[in-house]
Design a protein around this nucleic acid. Structure first.
Lengths: 251, 251
DNA sequence: CATTTTTATTGATTTTAATCAAGATGATAC
DNA sequence: GTATCATCTTGATTAAAATCAATAAAAATG
């Protein structure tokens, strides 16, 4: 794994993610102080790691563009996917408790990240109450993302998990100011399946059902939500039963 | 639901959980300042709520004695258990993001909690760097607890989930300074099953297997770990196969 | 203490998703 | 463009856990 090298790049002041990332609630002058501790790196290429489980915790990572996944490997060599992170997300705080990262994070596509050396950030936050508050808020967001993952995995049937995932993904895109009925999600189906605690086969079958019902169109990396209301309903309902439409086709 | 009323009680200075809870890393004088903002309540009785989903976020809760569970109710009326919290645990930070709690927390037995009004805590933390640091560490701990729950729920078979849960529970008791091979866990089997994403029947069957194999003895609320090595092995292995011992019995 | 209610266990059956297996499709390399 | 490789889809079968059902055992209630 290559070390990430610092480079020049546009700062927080001109970043489109100000309202989501660390600058939230900060005054212009404070954003400049924040800016001074942020290290910007060249683009992280697909497959490059931001950190690995066991590594010393030193910095937080703010995703500026692209996408990454967090995961751990089980004894059996399987990937347990813990989350997908998009622009505006801040990760790395899992490492604070033991000063050691607890999972692996790798880029899923060409990705831009901002590095925030934690000791410097902590010191600065003590001087800028709004920054400290935002750090706490971002951690609270992390807690809630984890809770939602647990809730997805607790859902008794696979249809619900998939429906809820798509619905929640849409909301995340919405909250970041992206189009939420049609978006690109650069993650393999296999990886989404693992995140949902399913096999790729089961995931594929459910996607087919959702497409057959004209609720979702998800081909490769492009997702389109055709019927948001139906999707939301499915996310909470018991079973995704196929209506006559399909029976006709099968007959 | 009754409002929790403040009352007099022994402070942080004399609390046995200093090394786990907020006072960690603080000097004597700072502990006294922390003490001054902590509200202590009469014992919370079994079934009483610390907070409910949707309520305004105002305070954090430190568990001093007893046990609580966090959960949400699904559309179908099922309880999704999100976690069990023991003395030394601090909860409530899920509410910061939207200034509204995202789950319900209820006492499982007679429980003592310390209330930390968040705005006061935040202000004090800015003045006491070690306190601010500990607040961040406690949130990091929360993130990791959530990650571990996701990892449990991602495990492909039920035996592993139960084995890992017992093993992890034991470690939690150990880290709090309690006996870790024999302890009392005041939670219904049904609730543990829900936490693990299983039905009570499946959970019961697996417990029976673990007892048959002399690995764990879990009757009602008393847990005894008879073979920690075997338990750890099971937590990661594929299937919990029953040896001849059982076949003989069944024959 | 007896009664009622809740919780836990165990068995039989059904349902669901995993596994096994074969193609189809799309991406990448040459 | 063609070949190769990885990913995805679909079908058949198996395995695992859920469900249904009936007791048994505790706990709570009067």
């Amino acid at each position: 794994m290559n070390e990430l090298k610092t480079t020049f790049s546009s700062g927080c002041s001109s970043c489109g993610l100000q309202r989501i990332c660390f600058p939230t609630g900060l005054m212009r002058t404070d954003i400049m102080r924040l800016d001074s501790i942020v290290e910007r790196t060249p683009k992280v290429t697909k497959g490059q790691y931001l950190y690995k489980a066991g590594q010393t915790f030193e910095t937080l990572f703010a995703i500026k563009a692209g996408a990454v996944k967090a995961f751990n490997i089980t004894q059996q060599g399987e990937e347990q996917i813990l989350g997908f992170y998009l622009p505006g997300d801040v990760i790395g705080m899992d490492g604070l408790q033991d000063l050691m990262h607890q999972c692996n994070v790798v880029a899923l596509e060409s990705t831009t990240v901002c590095l925030l050396p934690f000791d410097q950030l902590e010191r600065l936050a003590l001087q800028i109450p709004a920054l400290n508050h935002q750090l706490l808020c971002l951690m609270s967001r992390g807690l809630n993302d984890g809770r939602i993952h647990s809730e997805i995995l607790s859902k008794r049937n696979a249809d619900q998990r998939v429906a809820y995932f798509v619905w929640y993904l849409s909301r995340r895109f919405l909250s970041r100011g992206y189009k939420h009925t049609e978006f690109r999600f650069g993650v393999l189906h296999r990886e989404v399946a693992m995140f949902l605690g399913l096999t790729p086969e089961t995931f594929s079958r459910i996607l087919s059902k959702l497409m057959e019902l004209n609720i979702v169109a998800w081909r490769r990396k492009d997702i389109q939500i055709l019927d948001m209301a139906a999707l939301a309903r499915l996310a909470d309902e018991k079973v995704l039963s196929l209506p006559d439409v399909l029976d006709v086709k099968q007959a």
